[in-house]
Simulated assay, not measured.
Amino acid sequence: MGTAKRPTRRIGWGALSGRPCRTRTDNQRIKSRKVCVQLEESQSRSRLPGAGTRTLHPGASSWILKGVVEKFAASLVEPNVLFISQPGEKVNLLDGKALKDMGLEVDQATLLPDCLMADLAPSRDEFWFIEVVASDGPVTEERRQALIDWATAHGLEAEKCRFLTAFESRTASEAKKSLPVLAHGSYAWFANEPDGLLSWDELRFA
């Protein structure tokens, strides 16, 4: 009595036992299909507040940015994403036109927050400057001042500007490195704890 053969399996493509041998052309087609699937999965579509979607480029920062757009924005009364900057697409054409129509032109050479969001509710009327940190680039005192200077030069009130640095988690190495240099009067948000917000500000007692 012969030894039973154990079926051969390939993760993600199902059991292969009992199938005819593939030719080189078959294997090339499979490889090409697998690469296409990986490329499609590497990009993430993010739902914008209100309506519409935006395709985010692959990478850790995009995963955090997706959380900001879909989850942090939900904490605002009337959220509106005005601008998203990504590697290889510093200023989206639609974002650039919308900002220009509002009189808010972005200087690609000097000032590019990862995301600019507004709470359009009359009771809020706030602008959120958001930096996503998957490696570096938190809202420091210097960065905060540069953003305020840009905002006031375009007619926005400094008192209505809010500054947020988004991280993957509180235990992420990037967060541990960045938290000590966050600007006073700014906030930190963590993608794995979307319902919380860390505030760094001066003590005020009545």
Rank of each mutant, 00 (worst) to 15 (best):
M1H: 10
M1E: 01
T3S: 15
R9E: 10
R9A: 14
I11K: 08
G14I: 07
A15R: 08
A15G: 10
R19L: 15
R22T: 10
T25M: 04
N27T: 12
N27A: 13
Q28M: 14
Q28R: 08
R29W: 10
R29I: 04
R29D: 08
R29C: 05
R29V: 13
V35T: 07
V35P: 00
C36P: 00
C36T: 05
Q38D: 14
L39M: 12
Q43V: 15
Q43S: 15
S44M: 11
L48E: 02
G50D: 13
H57P: 00
P58G: 09
G59Q: 02
I64P: 08
K71A: 06
K71H: 13
F72N: 07
S75K: 09
L76W: 06
V81W: 02
V81P: 05
L82N: 03
F83H: 07
I84G: 07
S85L: 06
E89D: 12
N92R: 11
L94M: 10
K97N: 11
K97L: 15
L99W: 00
D101R: 14
V106D: 11
V106I: 15
T110Q: 07
L111K: 14
L111Q: 09
L112R: 11
P113E: 04
D114K: 12
C115Y: 02
M117L: 12
M117A: 04
M117E: 03
L120W: 12
P122M: 06
R124D: 05
F127P: 00
W128P: 02
I130R: 05
I130A: 06
E131R: 12
V132A: 08
V132E: 10
S135V: 10
T140N: 06
E141I: 01
R144H: 00
I148E: 03
I148V: 12
G155A: 07
G155I: 04
A158T: 01
A158Q: 08
A158V: 04
A158N: 01
F163P: 03
A166V: 00
F167S: 13
F167T: 13
S169W: 07
R170C: 05
T171V: 06
S173A: 14
S178I: 00
V181M: 05
L182K: 04
L182D: 03
A183M: 01
H184R: 10
G185I: 03
S186F: 02
S186L: 02
S186W: 00
S186A: 03
Y187A: 07
F190Y: 08
A191K: 05
N192T: 00
D195E: 11
D195L: 12
G196K: 14
L198Q: 09
W200V: 15
D201L: 08
R204H: 15
R204Y: 11
